[in-house]
């Protein structure tokens, strides 16, 4: 078996003195797609936040290795430059900063970190055009301030577009399907599928089995009470869809 891309061991994390993650372990190997499901408030977004380096969350135990490096030691921007991408559950609106400008800065900082040359305006626009096609992103949106006044679905699509631009090794999608209409869901999911390769992996957080019809996971995990309480194949999602989380209280 390939060595894990991401290896989470016995992770404990808290926010504002409240323990949320209580011993979570998970290995993700290159080429895999893992889905995480679980009730509201279980700690799914907390896991995403801890992996991406949000300061407010305090890691109180455990470890996270990413490509053999200690992820928890890294500043958030370094995690992103190393290839971790979080598609936010609630993307942030940034008035006055255009999506294009923002992405140009991001892409070039990531490229510099990887020892590549910064893209000039022409090659950047070319890359952008190409990746816009992946999620059928509207050019008009990109000239506007980042996410400002975007509809819920437009924000989510913009997250996946940014992911396509930054080509992460590990993409974490936190409820990217919520807020998308049926067509958009199909487009965004097929965008993710186009980005899949033998070298990268995805962690897909969702409440709905439907997304997993499009982005077919190798593993499905149930996160509850701050830990992974069940893991299985894609059929586990179907079972959860049918029966909900009643089994948790049994």
């Amino acid at each position: 078996m390939a060595t894990p891309l991401l290896s989470i061991q016995d992770l404990h994390a808290r926010i504002e003195g409240k323990d949320i993650l209580k011993g979570l372990s998970l290995d993700i190997r290159p080429g895999e797609v893992h889905a995480i499901m679980g009730p509201n408030g279980a700690g799914k977004s907390t896991l995403a936040a801890v992996l991406s380096g949000r300061e407010q969350y305090e890691v109180t135990g455990g470890s996270v290795q990413f490509q053999g490096k200690d992820l928890l030691e890294m500043a958030p921007e370094d995690r992103a430059r190393e290839g971790v991408f979080l598609a936010f559950q609630y993307p942030v609106e940034i008035p006055g900063v255009s999506t294009v400008n923002f992405l140009k800065t991001a892409v070039n900082q990531v490229r510099l970190h990887r020892g590549q040359e910064a893209l000039d305006a022409v090659s950047f626009l070319k890359l952008m055009k190409e990746r816009m096609a992946v999620v059928e992103m509207d050019q008009a949106l990109l000239n506007r301030s980042l996410n400002e006044g975007f509809s819920g679905g437009e924000k989510k699509r913009n997250e996946v577009f940014q992911m396509a631009m930054l080509e992460p090794t590990l993409g974490i999608l936190d409820e990217t399907d919520s807020g998308l209409d049926i067509d958009a869901l199909r487009i965004v999911a097929s965008g993710v599928n186009k980005l899949r390769s033998q070298d990268n992996a995805f962690l897909v957080i969702t409440h709905y089995q439907r997304l997993l019809d499009y982005i077919v996971p190798d593993f499905v995990h149930v996160l509850a009470g701050g830990r992974i309480v069940r893991s299985g194949g894609k059929e586990l999602a179907l079972e959860l869809e049918e029966n909900g989380y009643a089994f948790l209280s049994e």
Binding site: A75, E77, L86, F88, G96, V97, F102, L103, A106, L166
Partner: peptide, 20 residues
């Protein structure tokens, strides 16, 4: 944080926001 999560350093993120 949103910008950091895209690989933009904290100082650069602050500059972008101040500029905006």
């Amino acid at each position: 944080f949103y910008m950091q999560a895209r690989g933009i350093g904290k100082d650069e993120a602050r500059r972008l926001l101040l500029g905006a």
